[in-house]
Amino acid sequence: MVKYEGNVTITLLINSERYSVVVRPADTLLRVVREKVGLRGTKIGCENGDCGACTLLVDGVVTKSCMVLAVEVDGTEITTIEGLKNDRLKDAFISEGGFQCGYCTSGYLMNAEALLRRTPELSDEEIRVWLESNLCRCTGYEGIERAVKRAAGQKTQ
């Protein structure tokens, strides 16, 4: 049995780099990635599991990092927006105007990355259900949906 109390050192494999960080067991993965590791692309939004600005991948599974304690994912492989290598997806967001202020964009990109890894053949309903996990307060939803379709090789008209 693992037991963490007080300040403890955990190991996180983030974007293929190993980080040993000292955390409190109550620290969320979001805060550790940003404040202890220094990767600020994962955004703080509602910290309530609603907005998806903090979305990243844990062992390939799309996850809202504000709802996970860092100690829960000790030893797992984490991918943040800084480690996203899918240029086709990023280009699609640019081509289709998939962002306005850009604050929600890293969360949307990580969610879309997980969706595209899951299946290359996406239905409109599947895209809609997945994108419902994130909020864009600029309300640029149509551009985001078009970008995901373009990245999946679908027509966007």
Partner: peptide
């Protein structure tokens, strides 16, 4: 951010939990 401290246990069995 969670402002209070806590102890985290990760048991491998029901009895450990």
């Amino acid at each position: 951010m969670i402002h209070f401290d806590l102890v985290y246990y990760r048991p491998d069995t029901i009895d450990e939990a």
